[in-house]
Simulated assay, not measured.
Amino acid sequence: MKLFRVFSVLLIFILIAWVPMSCKKKYTPKPKAYFRIDFPQKEYKNWNLDFPFSFDRLSMTKIAKDQSRDAEKYWINIQYPEYRATIHLSYKTIDQNLEEYLEDSRKLAYKHSIVADAIAEQLYINPKENVYGTIYRITGNAASSIQFTATDSTKHFLRGALYFKERPNRDSLAPVIKFIDKDIVRLIESLKWK
């Protein structure tokens, strides 16, 4: 009987201590968040070297000659070091093979359709500067989110592709892609052939 009383009193104390703890707000884990990215004010300057083309580029970018094994003379990379992003530009001279270059570029863009949610094409036409192009915006977790071509249809052909040195994650890269997309549009709009 004495043991029963001790046990009952102990049980009451445990219940009294437990009830206030159980009324507290339950913890719900928060989803993974991404750092806020503060973008600088955009300032462009013209890039004009001994190349068959010139364009405006964001002043914070760095331009380097493409060092890949199969790189040709006029291939360059526009680097965004802070965002670990690079726009790879490859230039070719047209010798009655424009259709081949355009089809190869289209295939390279649509190669990402396996992992892409959608691919939107936007045409660009500037008869004054003789620049005609297409921008491919690839949504989803594709390795390249923007690709483009520009040509004068007779002599010059330029192809570009944006890549990140990060695992493709559309949610975390979306603000940076949007930031760089405007630079790509500016590049095409300011493109001049020599």
Rank of each mutant, 00 (worst) to 15 (best):
T139E: 10
C23I: 12
A174L: 09
Y80I: 02
V6K: 11
Y80E: 00
E166W: 13
G133C: 06
N46R: 14
R137A: 03
I12S: 07
Y27Q: 10
L123H: 11
N77S: 00
F148G: 01
K42M: 05
D38Q: 15
G133P: 05
S59K: 15
Y34R: 05
I119K: 02
K92V: 08
I119M: 03
E189N: 14
L11K: 10
K128N: 07
S113V: 02
E99D: 10
S90H: 09
P29D: 06
N130L: 05
A116P: 07
F148Q: 03
F39E: 10
D38M: 13
W47A: 04
E189W: 12
K155Y: 13
E166M: 12
K25R: 15
V9L: 12
P52F: 03
K165Y: 10
V19M: 12
K65G: 00
F39H: 11
Y44D: 00
K32W: 11
A109D: 01
R186E: 07
G140M: 07
I146Y: 09
Y124P: 02
Y101K: 05
L187P: 02
K65I: 08
F55C: 05
K92N: 11
N126G: 07
E99R: 15
M1E: 08
D181G: 05
E166Q: 14
K92E: 08
E72D: 08
F55L: 09
K62G: 01
A161H: 04
P20N: 11
F148V: 00
R186T: 14
A120F: 11
N46H: 06
P127D: 07
Q122K: 15
L49T: 08
Q67T: 12
I114N: 05
M60N: 08
Y101H: 09
N126R: 04
I16R: 09
L89P: 01
S8A: 13
S144F: 06
A118T: 15
A17T: 12
D95R: 12
H112Y: 13
I94P: 13
P175Q: 03
Y80Q: 02
P20T: 12
K24M: 15
I37W: 04
A143Y: 14
D181F: 13
A143Q: 12
A161I: 05
T149P: 00
L187A: 04
M60Y: 15
S59L: 08
K65D: 01
M21C: 05
Q41L: 06
L15W: 11
E103Y: 11
E103F: 08
Q96W: 07
S54H: 09
Q122G: 01
E129L: 06
E99G: 13
I125Y: 14
V176G: 04
T61W: 06
L108H: 03
T149L: 04
N141K: 09
Q147P: 05
I76F: 13
D152C: 04
D50Q: 13
L102V: 10
I125H: 14
T93N: 15
N46P: 02
D56V: 04
V9Y: 14
A71Q: 06
F13W: 11
F148W: 10
S144Q: 08
F55Y: 15
K194W: 06
E103T: 10
R84E: 10
L98C: 06
Y27A: 03
D50F: 12
E129T: 11
L158P: 03
L3W: 07
N141E: 07
L10R: 11
K62W: 09
